[in-house]
Write a protein that binds this DNA or RNA. Structure first.
Lengths: 144, 144
DNA sequence: TTCTCAAATGTTACGGTATAACAAAGTGAT
DNA sequence: ATCACTTTGTTATACCGTAACATTTGAGAA
């Protein structure tokens, strides 16, 4: 059970940061983890409703926001979705590749390329903040 | 009047591509141009309604989609907004810097960095599609 | 010209995404 | 126990985007 392992790591991660991974937040995290790729807020909401009877949008959005802020999830703006961060505790700027066909996600280290970007942007007087790079394309399987 | 000049260039660009910059599309483009930075679809819709009395969402979304497809606008997913492309006719993958404070946008050439990204992603079997890079940070003025 | 077809636009209605605002319940410190 | 604070519940609503079908427009063929 890989999920349990991730949750444990997430727990430690939150403790280190001095924030609380409450029961609700843990539950939402588990739901996101149960999907192989990108998940939408309202899917999570539906799952949550199955598990606890009722739940409203703010409940799930707040939990998702927390998890993103804690670095446990990433938001995929282009798809209005969320994915699990596979580099919790690591360097922590991700290069996130989303397959437009199957929705699968791959996450690489973005530090080298962000260094280059920071330099290029700096030339224009622009200071890039900490963030992930999100790119779409086609994965190995879908490319065949 | 810089707008007129841009519209002219856009016109030529569309003719070259064999697509039509109709009156409506031109009007929408002008409205987007009238803003300094990111514009939202419903802002454009409101402006359009002021100018021609009535207009419904599909009208403006279709025009915006066309303009994005034609390479005259970029969509800023993170903000649900649109910006003018300042590199019409150029290489044409943009590195778009959005200032989180003032909303101003700067657009650089993304080809060099995307080359690097394509190589890195290729190592993971991932084929990145044509697209823009969108980064947030703080611009020169807001940094002082 | 007139017809025809395809592209563009108009119109209605709806579904998906997200947040404001306030109430209630939990948590921890003194 | 009570106070301050964080988290969660609840209601309502605002914002974003598109499906589906009707109508108009324009370019080319008969």
């Amino acid at each position: 059970m890989e999920i349990a392992c991730f949750i444990e790591a997430a727990d430690r991660h939150c403790q280190q940061q001095g924030v609380k991974l409450t029961a609700l937040r843990r539950q939402v995290l588990e739901l996101v983890l149960s999907y192989p790729g990108v998940v939408k807020a309202y899917q999570v909401l539906a799952d949550l409703q199955k598990q606890r009877g009722i739940a409203a949008p703010p409940t799930v959005y707040r939990a998702l926001d927390f998890l993103v802020a804690a670095g446990l999830l990433h938001k995929v703006d282009a798809l209005n979705g969320y994915i699990v961060c596979h580099h919790v505790g690591c360097s922590h700027e991700g290069l996130i590749l989303v397959c437009g066909d199957c929705g699968q996600v791959e996450e690489l280290d973005a530090t080298p390329v962000l260094d280059v970007l920071r330099q290029q942007a700096g030339g224009a007087g622009f200071a890039i903040s900490q963030q992930n790079l999100m790119l779409t394309g086609r994965c190995k399987e879908c490319r065949t």
